[in-house]
Simulated scan of single mutants.
Amino acid sequence: MKFGVIVFPGSNCDRDVAYVTRDILQQPTRMVWHQDTDISDLDVIIIPGGFSYGDYLRCGAIAKFSPVMQQVIAHSISGKLVLGICNGFQVLTEAGLLPGALTRNRDLHFICDRVPLKVEKNSLVWTQQYSKGEIITLPIAHGEGRFYASEDTLKAIEDNDQVVFRYENDNPNGSLNNIAGICNSTGNVVGMMPHPERASDTMLGNTDGLKMFAGLLEKVAAMV
């Protein structure tokens, strides 16, 4: 399985993701510059955290117009896998690949912390190694992580079982319905504010995030 990690001007978690896929999991990984227009060789696209294009205008608002995002959209439409982490989640909502929007945190402060999450959906290739209802701990680092959607859109997300993770106990940013991560209706596109790549190495004292990537590889291996 070959991973592609999108690199925008301002991305700062791209190498963290690549370290997990390439060095820990030993999978071919290509860093994809935002101006690239050919990602046909890639199986999985990951849009990492950071501040794409300096987060001018709105987080992810400029990134959605980059040449590579047209290819990511086509990649997702074909049924291939896409994961957006933090700023990547913001980019996916701006590009229309996921519903809703990410807005300023409730208290208007940047938050850097570790938070407990409840796994709401473990039927995805990304989450199959978790148990439904399992509580895991992942880092967050964002100023615009409050998930927002209209009443109708929020109801559709809930009714269609598109919530992947919720903040447990304490909602750090005011996200509606405690939503920390969602997927599209077909489940091949996932966006989340917490950082699984920052909880995937034993040296960091937490490997709760590694199951996301390992679960994907397990699923692929079972299909071979």
Rank of each mutant, 00 (worst) to 15 (best):
Q128C: 15
K219M: 13
T207P: 11
V164Q: 04
G84A: 04
Y130T: 10
Y56E: 14
Q71R: 14
D38Y: 13
N12A: 06
G205Y: 10
G215L: 10
N188M: 05
R15K: 14
A214T: 15
V44W: 14
G215H: 12
A180W: 07
Y19I: 07
V32Y: 08
E197H: 04
Y130F: 12
L210H: 08
M212P: 02
A214R: 15
S76F: 03
N177V: 08
T202V: 15
L210C: 09
A149N: 04
L138D: 00
G84F: 04
I47C: 03
L57E: 10
A61L: 12
W126Y: 13
D43N: 12
S52M: 07
S131R: 12
G50R: 04
D208L: 06
W126C: 10
L92E: 01
G205F: 09
D113Y: 11
G60C: 06
G49T: 02
N173R: 03
G145S: 00
L117Y: 07
R58V: 01
Y148I: 13
Q35H: 14
W126M: 12
T127Y: 10
V189K: 03
T37Y: 11
Q27K: 14
E218T: 13
H195R: 04
Q128G: 11
N12Q: 09
N169H: 09
A141R: 06
